[in-house]
Amino acid sequence: MADVVGLLVLGIILVVLLPFLLLALIGMLWAVVYPVMLIWAVLFSGKKLDQQIVNTASREASLRKTLGRDPLTTIDGGYRTGITSCGVVWAGVVYGPSHWHLLIGWINNLVGGSVDIFQKVISAGRAEAMQRLRENALRDGWEDVINVRIDTSDMTPQGARKSIKAVEVFAYGTGVKYT
């Protein structure tokens, strides 16, 4: 009888402690994984960013070449005639600097002046979002996108120090078809 009660108590304690044990496990894993990832970021994140920029630019160039023009315009399209159908089209990308870039940016911030590394990261995200807008528009069968707007919003909540550092670039417009 005492054995059964003892096991029961032990079981209850284990069940109650389980979430904390899991948290501790994740914490320990994080302590091991984080330095490795950081070294990886120091070595490769700059290269990865450059590759991303080149990739987006080449996709954009090939699309422009096949179309002969850029399908995106920011004007309302009032001058256009012969539009037969239209509809909203959008694309968004969540893009963040690596922790190595954050460190470079922090040092750059101490010195002042333009913080080129963040500008580069956000531009890469923006170029990617605009390219996806072009691709989405063509995939949906639109010929042009008028009234394009680009929003950038922070994915990091105010005051949250230990959270992801990223921005969301969101591009949207109205796709139009002529015939």
Partner: peptide
Amino acid sequence: NIIGGELSQYTELLQ
């Protein structure tokens, strides 16, 4: 996010 670049989970979430 440590490595940087696109966070496709959140791109998908926002979509």
